[in-house]
Amino acid sequence: MIELYQRISINRDFPEYQLKKGDIATLIDIVPHPENGEDGYILEVFNAIGESIHVIIVPQSSVTPLKPDEILSVRSLAEV
């Protein structure tokens, strides 16, 4: 389980939020599913200079913990 306030990687595209697989977000809360389905994660997404640009809810399976052998990169939101 990922701890609150940890940075994670999104493992699929969310075009409705201009987010792509591999984008980084911060886990800010966990929302239990009301009918014993998959829990939701509330994520805050920041731009490259640290400004908050989205707060979204995604299924738990849509995120992956960051690993020490990964490197961050930058892309433009206009690329979506």
Rank of each mutant, 00 (worst) to 15 (best):
F14E: 02
I56V: 15
D13N: 12
D69Y: 13
R12K: 15
V74D: 12
E70C: 00
L72N: 15
S52R: 12
P34K: 13
V58T: 04
R12C: 13
R75V: 00
I28A: 08
Y17L: 06
E35R: 14
I53K: 04
A48L: 12
S9L: 06
I30G: 08
V58H: 03
Q60A: 14
I42L: 10
L27G: 00
D13K: 10
I10F: 02
F14Q: 00
E51F: 11
L27F: 02
D39N: 10
N11Q: 09
S76A: 05
D29C: 11
I49M: 13
Y41F: 15
H54Y: 13
P15N: 02
S61W: 02
I49D: 15
G50K: 08
N11F: 03
A25R: 00
P15K: 03
G37M: 09
N47L: 11
I42A: 04
V31M: 11
F46C: 08
S61H: 07
G37F: 03
P59S: 12
I10N: 02
I71A: 14
S9T: 04
I71E: 15
T64N: 08
P65M: 12
D39S: 01
I8V: 15
P15S: 11
I28N: 06
S73K: 09
E35P: 05
I24H: 03
P15C: 09
E16N: 14
K21Y: 06
R75N: 01
V58W: 03
V45T: 03
A25L: 05
L66C: 08
I53E: 07
I10M: 03
L77E: 10
H54G: 05
G50W: 09
R12T: 05
A48H: 11
P59G: 12
P34G: 13
I71D: 14
V31E: 12
D29M: 11
F14S: 01
G50V: 08
K21L: 14
I8G: 05
L72T: 15
S73N: 01
E70R: 01
E38C: 07
Q18D: 09
